[in-house]
């Protein structure tokens, strides 16, 4: 593909993605039906569950699921006490680095 085609590709992808984000945000307040509201309230937690599953197997190459589970377990334990997300994340990264060091050498 030449540069002009690639540039058109980027611009078309960007324009479509911007509209996908922009239009619902612009008209979000028209979605005032209480049933829809109740439905949409669950979307963030649902996205969390879905993202956790889709990312679980690919978070740590080479598909080290034991280290992934241990790291996330540590993150959950550290998150149980309220106080921000930094320590759970750093704890998980430390466990992941240790696990990968043992796994990969």
């Amino acid at each position: 593909m030449n540069s002009l085609t690639l540039l058109t590709f980027v611009l078309a992808a960007a324009l479509g993605t911007a509209l996908i984000r922009f239009l619902p945000a612009r008209y979000a307040h028209h979605a005032a039906d209480p049933r829809l509201e109740r439905l949409l309230q669950g979307v963030p937690a649902a996205a969390l569950g879905a993202l956790l599953v889709t990312g679980f197997t690919s978070a740590l190459p080479p598909h080290d699921l034991v280290t992934t589970a241990l790291s996330l377990g540590v993150a959950a334990l550290l998150a149980w006490r309220p106080g921000g997300v930094l320590w759970p994340v750093l704890g998980a990264v430390a466990v992941a680095a240790t696990g990968l060091y043992i796994h990969l050498g």
Binding site: A45, L48, L51, L52, A75, A76
Partner: peptide, 8 residues
């Protein structure tokens, strides 16, 4: 992933 767990 760890961020998601803490948020959850």
């Amino acid at each position: 992933e760890a961020l998601f767990v803490s948020l959850l």
